[in-house]
Design a protein around this nucleic acid. Structure first.
Lengths: 259, 259
DNA sequence: AATCGGAATTCCATTATATGGAACTTGATT
DNA sequence: AATCAAGTTCCATATAATGGAATTCCGATT
């Protein structure tokens, strides 16, 4: 449910179609897409044809559409080649060794956090991990940490674009609550997710940002609430902050002092 | 190194740029891209701008480019929603339980195989798995199995587009050897990768195809050669073929008898 | 099997957008 | 500071996208 900032230009329209397919709970059919993206029949039809031609979209036998495997191929390269992720990787692993819990790395993208990497002991339930998963900023540790690291202007702009949705009973309900929380994060240097996204799951996160605060991200340690108390999480604050600090230092070394 | 079938239309050009970035060993700079994709300066520059605007591409501080995180987001959805993968998933898991070795699911896309899923006991070395990884058809078990399942016409067309590259000393060197191998696969119903892609790694695979042989894929069980002999692999033939058969049956049930 | 109705696809004159050559700016190197 | 290469912007032109309407396809229903 990203802020439908209808893309401009031919490419933007095409991506809009992909996003529409991506955000549909079930594979949309032609008519479904017709009302999801605001385009005339003929136009949409050709766009879909092009997307299929490029392998970005696939038809299912019932004439519904799903995202194409070319995206997997590209994403695989995107992940492997991502500079920030590469720099951060050893620090994620160290933080995981120190805490024994799952560690996430996420970057801010619009009003969402996109998870770039994850380190966990043993994935009992196999999953495509969390990588690429997009979650709202206002109810994740990484998201709130990233928000706190933004410049005031950028944050104001972004916050006004958020639409709040109550994921759990702890989810921050509105802008007011979020701003209070951000103040707290800026004071303490760490962000908590107190079961605000998934019931039973909480985490502690620290912000990561470039020198100019244009690029913001976050690192977090996540644990199930039944096993780790929020106080125990809080004790990891120095570790999480240390990892964030170390990543930022590595960035300035590897990327030049500009960022 | 995919068959540069330079995409047509505005969208195609854009994807070409993405592919160029994806296939570069190191992040390309503007001039690098200029000769990778055959486009005039001004045009390329605007295309890159558009791609960045859409989050499909990112600039690094040294003016080189890397793929953007939006691709991860889209791919995450593509993976989760993929119908074929969803249908195959339980069968992969069962095959893994039966053999105790790593199981792969891949689909044919042009002259490459794209891995859709993977099940393994314990990933000692953490990795973004193999998912989305693109490998040549002619030197992977899944790839050769898929080739064997193609209609003669489609296979001929595809084979002529392959450029052979010797990955290991066992890699099939040319079309002739590949055709012999395909005949063998069609007779026996299973394909072997005899350390043809990675030294020390071999696998046994079985083809999966839709009714009309338009869609082809494969499932494989992989093992290190030092621990599992090729004879032991061969004993799993019924299991691998059984899994492939079961997936095809499920497809016709879930997707209607047409495919 | 035949009919009907909604959905998907094709068509083409019009319009908007991408194109690409050249001029310009930036920033690194000596 | 000067030079040169790399990156960026501009704008008249060519090309590709647009969108309304007509047509075909498909799948219910009888």
């Amino acid at each position: 449910m990203p802020g439908n900032e209808s893309g401009t230009g031919t490419l933007g329209k095409a991506i809009d179609v992909l996003e529409a397919v991506a955000s549909s709970p079930r594979p949309p059919r032609f008519t479904d897409l017709l009302q999801l993206v605001d385009q005339p029949r003929g136009t949409l039809h050709r766009q879909i044809s092009n997307l299929i031609e490029e392998g970005l979209l696939s038809v299912r036998q019932d004439h519904s559409y799903e995202l194409g495997v070319t995206l997997l191929k590209l994403a695989s390269r995107a992940w492997a080649g991502n500079q920030f992720r590469t720099v951060a990787e050893p620090h994620l692993r160290r933080l995981h060794e120190q805490t024994g819990e799952t560690v996430h790395l996420g970057v801010l993208k619009g009003v969402e956090v996109i998870y770039l990497d994850k380190v966990e002991s043993m994935q009992a339930v196999r999953m495509h991990s969390q990588i690429g998963n997009a979650s709202p900023v206002y109810c994740t540790g990484v998201g709130k940490a990233a928000l706190a690291a933004l410049t005031d202007a950028a944050r104001d702009r972004l916050i006004s674009a958020i639409t709040f949705h109550r994921h759990t009973e702890n989810t921050l309900p509105d802008v007011k609550a979020l701003r209070v929380e951000i103040g707290e994060i800026q004071r303490t240097g760490v962000a908590f997710d107190r079961q605000e996204h998934e019931p039973g799951i909480h985490c502690i996160a620290a912000p990561i940002h470039s020198r100019d605060h244009e690029f913001v991200a976050g690192i977090s340690t996540t644990a199930p609430a039944y096993r780790i108390s929020i106080e125990q999480l809080a004790e990891w604050a120095p570790l999480v902050q240390g990892a964030a600090r170390a990543i930022m230092d590595d960035m300035t070394v590897r990327l030049g002092p500009k960022s």
